[in-house]
């Protein structure tokens, strides 16, 4: 997304009149009114976006005998729900599985996509368009298109209910986006940089890691943030490929829990809050990257 300064830039160059420059004069009453309505609208929609999470957080603090009815403050704070949710849902196992999957999918996907993005973005070779379309196919394809045979084929190879059985297909499905993303990045780096490195005697491997990578970190970080959040939240694949409780990831485990134990609303709410914490931390720290990635219009699976 653009910073306000970047957004103002075209006005400075094309507007030409001092009135077009923001902050160069006090706002007129009409502008002040319009700015006020803007804020009111943004506040209203922010409240709507936040309300469901807020009410869930409140429920997670309810004492055992308070039913989850509408939005109401907890009569007294009960952090015991969190301890109970942790035990009942076997949450330590769920979170560990999710962490193992994410911690393999993210680096593996990232490295593979740096390589493919580099090949497609900075090199010329026969058949590159055809190969690129092979990758693009997965960008639009819904996961539903592969899930049925994926389950039966992985089962035939004994890979259902193993970490590899979720990690490999998940990574493969993220490669399309990553390849597209890194290719766009490497296409935007000046060719002169690559050519200068080659003239200095660097081979393609050295050019990638020593010359191109240092300036590629913002793009790589964005991709990693998306990979992490997609992997952590992946539902369909995890639900189908990990049915055993010992390897189930948090979304799949909790998803099944919703159906079975809807009575314990505060425990469920607490589990949902716990499950979101890793993503929220990544989001709070690397928010700009996440928003930039999502608004690029890429569809995941």
């Amino acid at each position: 997304m653009t910073s306000p300064a970047a957004a103002a830039a075209p006005r400075l160059t094309t507007g030409g009149r001092p009135t077009a420059i923001p902050k160069s004069r006090p706002a007129t009453p009409r502008e002040r009114l319009s700015s006020l309505t803007t804020h009111i609208a943004l506040i209203v929609f922010s409240v709507i976006a936040f309300l469901p999470f807020f009410s869930m957080f409140l429920v997670s603090l309810y004492p055992a005998d308070q039913p989850a009815v509408g939005i109401a403050l907890p009569r007294e704070l009960n952090f015991g729900n969190y301890a109970r949710a942790w035990d009942v849902t076997n949450f330590a196992t769920l979170m560990t599985s999710s962490a193992i999957v994410a911690l393999v999918v993210v680096p593996l996907g990232t490295i593979l996509c740096i390589l493919t993005g580099y090949a497609f973005g900075a090199m010329r070779f026969p058949g590159r368009n055809l190969l690129f379309f092979t990758f693009l196919f997965g960008l639009l394809m819904p996961f539903e298109a592969t899930i049925v045979p994926l389950y039966y084929d992985l089962r035939a190879f004994g890979l259902v209910n193993t970490y590899a059985g979720l990690i490999l297909p998940e990574t493969a499905l993220f490669l399309s986006f990553g390849t597209f993303w890194m290719r766009a990045h490497f296409l935007s780096t000046p060719r002169a940089l690559v050519e200068a490195a080659r003239i200095d005697g660097a081979n393609s491997w050295q050019t990638l890691w020593r010359v191109l990578l240092p300036s590629a970190w913002p793009a790589i970080t964005t991709m990693m943030v998306l990979f992490f959040i997609w992997s952590w939240n992946e539902f369909l694949l995890a639900l189908v490929l990990m049915t055993d409780k010992s390897v189930q990831t948090a979304p799949a485990g909790l998803g099944l829990f919703i159906g079975e134990h809807t009575k314990d609303s505060s425990g469920l709410a607490a589990a949902a809050v716990l499950m979101s914490i890793p993503c929220l931390i990544v989001y709070v720290v690397l928010q700009r990257h996440f928003i930039r990635g999502v608004t690029s219009g890429s569809v995941k699976g």
Partner: peptide, 27 residues
């Protein structure tokens, strides 16, 4: 950052939050 929050969390969490909103005595 607030408007984007729904994009960050799992659909499972969103479903937990909304099932009470839609309950008979819900929000």
């Amino acid at each position: 950052s607030i408007l984007f929050l729904p994009q960050v969390v799992s659909m499972v969490v969103i479903a937990v939050a909304w099932q009470w909103i839609y309950a008979q005595d819900g929000v």
